[in-house]
Every structure is written in structure tokens, then in C-alpha cells.
Amino acid sequence: MTAPHPSNPSSCRDCQFPPQTIALIGKYQSREIAESLSLLAKNLHDRGVGVLVEEATASLSETGVEPHIWTRCGYAEIGARADAAIVLGGDGTMLNAARHLARHRVPLVGVNQGRLGFMTDIARADMLTCVDDLLAGKFTAESRMLLSGEIVRDGRVVASNLALNEVVVDKGAIGRLIDFDLYVDGEFLYNLRSDGVIVSTPTGSTAYSLAANGPILHPQVTGIALVPLCPHSLTNRPVLVGDRNAIEIRIVRADDSRVHFDGQVTFDMKPGDAMRIRRSEDSVCFLHPPGYSYFAMLREKLHWSRQPTTR
């Protein structure tokens, strides 16, 4: 296996090849996912690999997987036992799995059965062929940074979570602009009235941040993008800061403000609350199949110009 990027050498655990135990994680209540999961579980079992199935995934009513070939378990047990995890679904399924398994440094492989699939880069049709390459140690490991965020209210932390894509502070359900101050390493950057602000990792730069006219950041860029959402002042533009900078968003005025982690975990905020964000000590390890190219993925997913023909 190719070594992870040297800027964060501990982010991908030393993988055992061939892996002795692989976890399967899928989108809930999906017939198509259940079929793929059944096929993968049987294929891995027949090749002598131990199979773990995440407990919510295992609750699918139509998995079709014989109970004797896999073990149902939670994320903590997957973290302790799995040499790698295969995630079946779209980017949302990968985001959820990544937040749960980041502290355990379990390498993640994505089989795309969603729509875009920026993080799940293996097509379902190539799934079993890619398993051959995975078991042969031909995949490349890549580290992706996470954000750690906490809400501070009256001097104490009232909520916290991780994000692989982005942390978003926004106007909530009421729909009125919020007023907040933004600080970087304790230094005041600006006050803004807007729908909110996106704090994005390089991985998240092709997600919500991209839709808000934020920059696309290569995964090897060690930076964090601050992207205003519909700012009242037209001079406010995205700002890129270092991955070691501490970011703080203080709510000044808001009828209903909220913070979202990867669009999946949400907490309410109040005037006076501070959202503190920094790079997490944990990272996510992605395993990419032979021939993977980040730029080729961008061309395909964003429908950019065709690659020039070589003459």
C-alpha cells in the first residue's frame, strides 16, 4: 500500500494485508444497498475474510446475508476489530461512518451507490474487482483532515462534534439574517449580517462550500475555507486560513441560529454563544483503488471539459 501523505503520517493506521477482518457499512433501508452488501459479505467470507456488519446496516430487513457468515456490531467494536471498512452508499453514508470511526483510524473504502460520490469512488459494477485489489494491497492510502467544533455558552461547552466536510452556522428555520463576529486565533476578522458562514475542510470544498461559491481545495492543501452564506455586504468573500488556526464565531443577534456538522448533526445556538472550531487531532484515512485521480474525479463529477486527445 502507498504510504499516507507525510504531513500527517499517523492518520492512517498500519494496515494488515491481506486484511483479516473487514466491516461493511451501508445506507439504511435501501434494497440496492442490501443486495450489494449480501454480495460483498459472501465474497469476503468465501475468501476467508472475517466480516463485520454495522448494527444499523444489519437491521435491513432484506439483507439476504446468511447470519453465520458475518457478525453484527457497533462502531466501537468495528473500530477495535476491523482492518478496513467498506462503505456502500453515497457521500452522506461515508460522512456518517467517517465521524464514527475517525478516532479508531480504520481505513475506509467507498462504493458509490449515491448520486455524486466525491468520496465513494468505486462504482458498484467494479466492486468485486476492487475487492481483489484491496486484498492484494494495491490500494493507496490518503489522509483527510477533520474539524472539531464546540458550542460555548456562559463559559461552558454545551455541545461538540466532528465534521469531515464542514461546520455551518446559519439562520435556522425562521429565515432572518443573523449577526455574528468572526475571530481567527483570537483576532477579530469581521462582523457580518448574512444567512450564516461555512467553515470547510478541503474534502468539504466540493460540497456545500462549492454551492456557495467557495474555492475547491485539493485534499493535500492544509487549509480551512471560511465561506459567507448570502452576505448582506457584497465585499465579503471566502477566506482561506491555515489548518492550525483557531476559528471562533460569536452570535451577536439572531432569532433562530443553528450549527450543523456535515449537514447531519444539528444544535441550536443563542445570542452570546460562541462556536469554536479547529482542526481535530483525528483524521480520516481513505483507501483509493489503482488508477484513482482526484482531478479525473473532478472532471467527471463536475462535468468539466473532456481530457485532451494525445496525438
Rank of each mutant, 00 (worst) to 15 (best):
D46V: 03
N213Q: 12
S280H: 09
D181Q: 06
Y294H: 15
P18G: 00
H68L: 05
S283P: 07
R306F: 01
L287R: 12
V106S: 05
V51C: 02
A84G: 11
P19S: 06
A211L: 13
I178R: 13
S209K: 03
R258G: 10
R306L: 04
E54Y: 05
I25C: 03
S59D: 15
I174D: 02
L229C: 08
Y75V: 07
G272F: 14
L44M: 04
S305F: 12
I224F: 01
L101T: 01
P19N: 07
I78N: 03
T140G: 11
H303L: 09
I277T: 09
V109L: 08
G196V: 13
D256L: 15
P215W: 00
G172A: 05
Q20F: 00
D83F: 09
A102L: 05
R311C: 06
G149S: 14
V167W: 09
D268W: 03
C130W: 02
V221A: 12
L298T: 04
A84S: 13
C73W: 02
T266M: 15
G26L: 07
V241Q: 01
T93I: 07
N165L: 13
V241R: 00
Y294Q: 03
D46E: 15
A141P: 15
H100W: 00
I151A: 03
R299I: 06
P308S: 08
D83L: 08
R13C: 10
T235F: 09
G272M: 14
E281Y: 02
E35V: 13
N161G: 13
R306K: 14
P238E: 06
R153W: 06
A84T: 14
V241L: 01
V53C: 05
R306S: 09
L217W: 00
S305K: 12
V53Y: 03
V184I: 13
R244V: 01
G48H: 06
E248P: 01
L147R: 12
